[in-house]
Write a protein that binds this DNA or RNA. Structure first.
Lengths: 211, 211
DNA sequence: TGTACATCAGTGAACGCGCGTTCACTGATGTAC
DNA sequence: TGTACATCAGTGAACGCGCGTTCACTGATGTAC
């Protein structure tokens, strides 16, 4: 709490949070374009009209959810790119971080996976733009890595986008296999994928296929 | 036409096609879980009740669309895996085939991208199962490739899934950038991605990161 | 500290509308003889 | 070929229901003096 809000502001924030949380929960079993305003307010226990004190529309609420869901992903990305150690260690650590993030915020991961290509244009655009910023950040980290010496700009961008995609894809797979043997299989596959990409990186400038 | 259907059957098929086509068109701007039965029949020009002569529900129609959309993708995959030539040639040819497929069937590609993680469980399951079959097929083709000598079963499965994912991801990117400079950028990025994966493949058994 | 007024988050009634589903039906097509 | 009956794709009226949005409102909180 950086500054104590008035009682009225605090209560408003609380209702807003409740609307966002209720929506996120309802979105585990449907997509944003079929989510109803009344459905959300009913889940929170406020009148339908109260919704308009916080959002202009469900689409507007969706954009707020994007900021929240990708906001929770951001620190994880920072941690992954700043992890030190050899290739295998970094790969294992990255997949563990992804798995942990899915455990901590399953609804966020589901929302992004679902709405990234979903039926609401403003939400798709918000996700696309935010992921592009993540890719830039990853690209900058890659550029500083000695392994990337001699790499062209477009190659670095490609690799950064590939990593961001892999991260989301892996997160989405963990969502469908949160425990047990299925989870272990996702874990091993994710490690292998990163290993393959790492191998490709290591030999990118060798010529041949990578020429 | 393998066998001439009766007039009645032919007319029924025609209406069914019209319902599927109308749904596919409506789904360019929304997702399946918000698509209405009346919306589809209105677009076709039949009574709402006629819908029930063909599908039990919108979900049921969605599953039929999965078969259709992934059915159109199947021959492309066969073509890509059976293409001969050196690495660079195969890569360029594969990306061209993907771009061509998106041009030919944009609504199919959009539908699969959108509903793969969408809000209708039966449709997600149908897509997942069909993509798993594609991965098996790609895996079998990879196994016969001399480059894969010495590869473990799980590694081949991982690579096959990675290729299927890349194909869908690339198709989805072409959808958002169908012409001009944006399309060229998608093309180059897709080529680079496949190059990186190809480089990783070529050095998979070298030890080191790929150990 | 107390008073008078302003603000505004949340209420509840009301609206018109489109939804999915039921039902008995129509009339063209198919079939048996 | 003709007739009598069966099938069944598509119709149209009707239903109850939940939707998003409007509006004037209430009463707790905030502010000025």
């Amino acid at each position: 709490m950086s500054h104590t809000l008035g009682v009225r502001q605090a209560q408003k924030q609380k209702t807003r949070r409740a609307l966002l949380d209720a929506a996120l929960e309802l979105l585990e079993e449907q997509s944003l374009s079929s989510l109803g305003l009344r459905e959300v307010t009913r889940a929170v226990g406020v009148a339908p009209t109260a919704f308009y004190r916080h959002f202009r529309s469900i689409e507007d609420l969706g954009v707020a959810l994007v900021e929240e869901a990708l906001g929770s992903l951001h620190p994880m990305i920072r941690t992954i790119v700043s992890t030190t150690g050899d290739g295998e260690e970094r790969i294992a650590r990255a997949v563990e971080l992804i798995a942990g993030h899915v455990d901590a915020h399953p609804a966020h991961v589901r929302f992004i996976a679902r709405e990234r290509h979903g039926g609401v244009q403003a939400v798709r655009a918000a996700i696309r733009d935010q992921l592009a910023l993540f890719a830039v950040e990853v690209g900058e980290a890659l550029a500083e890595d000695p392994v990337s010496a001699g790499w062209g700009e477009e190659d670095l961008v490609m690799l950064a986008q590939l990593y961001v995609d892999q991260m989301l894809g892996t997160a989405s797979l963990f969502l469908e296999a949160p425990v047990g043997e299925a989870r272990e299989r996702v874990f091993r596959m994710a490690v292998r994928r990163l290993r393959l990409i790492g191998t490709g990186r290591a030999h990118w400038l060798d010529g041949g296929v990578g020429g």
